[in-house]
Computed example of a mutant assay.
Amino acid sequence: MGNALSLKSLFGNQTNQESDSVSGCVSALAHDLAHFQITSQVPEGLNQHVASSKKAQAKWYNKLLLAWREANPPPKTPEQASRLVIQTLKQNNVDQGLLKFYSLPIPHDLIGSFPPPWPKGVIFELRTLPVDARAVADGDGLTVYVDVADPREAANVPREVLLAVSKRSIARASRDYLMADGLQRKIAAAGYRVLNGSNNEDVLAKKYRIRLRGIDAPENQMPYGLESKVELTYLVQGKCLVVHVYGEDQYGRLVGDVYCNGKFAQEIMLKKGLAWHYKAYDNRPELIKWEKDARVARVGLWAASNPEKPWEWRKANRQGRGILELIIDLFKLMADYLFRGNHNTKRR
């Protein structure tokens, strides 16, 4: 990748002996920057470490290339290369992916400023905008929004959504609120929403429905259902969340672990006795322990001797609704039969 002249400019006026002593991971980054200088192509395999578009990745490499040229002297050790990446990009999720890709270490004095690595099984991570209280459906489900400026979202916004946002801004400026509201509905139908940002500016955000992984809270109509919803609302209202996504359920919701200011939402719900451990889908030992401790302490729903399980309640109510619908259909058939009989008698 690259050529001798480009590599020489990236490594500076080092002697052959000094160049030979440059770490392999530093050399790999320098080679990829030289290659990018010539081809404008980022290295293959980077997508496995960063969840961003090729366009966004190209911007990072362009910044890194400029920073590397301006460094005096150029990075020679892995720690020096790591610091250059961190100082240039200033985005923790991007930094960590690139550092991992090149096997570069996080400098010792900066370890605390980085979030811990994703647990096994995490597909991707969401970093949300502040959560509205009305977005909490119950004790184990909520709706969140992610700013499309996030590298993972930026390249995936449909063109028609961007056009609708632009037209909506023009409509609002001209006080055509009927048109603006119609465009807002079009944006919402595509899974997006224009929100009011911290500086009173419009922020386009992607909507995600989240199901808290590993727990099952009482339904709102069940005992402790309202308390469970209120507790989750209290935890997340007005705060930005970190969601580790593991998959998607049959209703199109993302199943994930929810963190709020460093607090693990599922841990709080289980310890306060406001949710069951959903053993059928998650057998993590810490969830088992938190539910067991709440049972022993008889807190929340465990104050009852034999609380009804949410999944059994849903099953019973689905069956009940099925019987009710059958009865209603029979009454409709009987009413139709009587009506037709009366109508035919009158015709005679």
Rank of each mutant, 00 (worst) to 15 (best):
R209F: 09
L204F: 01
Q221Y: 10
E227Y: 05
T143N: 04
L126E: 08
G214N: 04
Y145W: 14
R127A: 04
Y192M: 12
R211E: 10
G121L: 08
K206G: 10
T128I: 03
R172D: 05
I170H: 12
A133N: 00
K206D: 08
V148K: 12
V194A: 04
E160R: 11
Q184R: 07
V122H: 02
R175H: 07
Y145Q: 06
R127Q: 11
V194Q: 06
L162Y: 04
S198H: 00
K207T: 12
P158D: 08
A189Q: 11
N200V: 09
Y208I: 07
A154K: 07
K167L: 12
V230E: 05
D150P: 07
A205Q: 05
N200M: 12
T143A: 08
L178G: 14
L195R: 05
R159T: 13
G225H: 11
L162S: 14
R159H: 13
E160C: 08
A154C: 01
G191W: 08
V230M: 11
A154E: 07
E227P: 08
V194R: 10
Y224S: 13
Y224C: 13
G197D: 03
R175F: 01
A149E: 15
R175G: 02
S166P: 00
D140P: 00
D150S: 14
T143E: 10
Y224T: 13
Y224D: 14
A190H: 15
V146T: 09
S174I: 02
S174C: 02
K167D: 14
K120I: 14
A133W: 00
Y177Q: 12
N199L: 15
N196Q: 10
D181S: 13
G182Q: 09
K120D: 14
Y208M: 11
V203T: 11
V161H: 06
D132T: 13
A137R: 09
E153S: 12
E153K: 13
A180I: 03
G141L: 03
K167V: 05
P130C: 01
V157E: 03
A135G: 04
S198P: 04
G182P: 04
A217F: 05
K120L: 15
D176V: 10
E201P: 00
D176K: 13
D138S: 02
N196F: 09
I123S: 13
S174M: 07
N220R: 08
S166V: 01
V230D: 04
D202C: 07
A137F: 02
L204V: 09
M222N: 00
I170D: 15
G191L: 05
G139D: 03
N220C: 02
I187W: 00
D138I: 02
N199I: 12
L195F: 05
I215P: 00
N156I: 01
M222S: 01
M222R: 01
N156A: 05
L183K: 02
D150V: 06
L163A: 13
G197N: 03
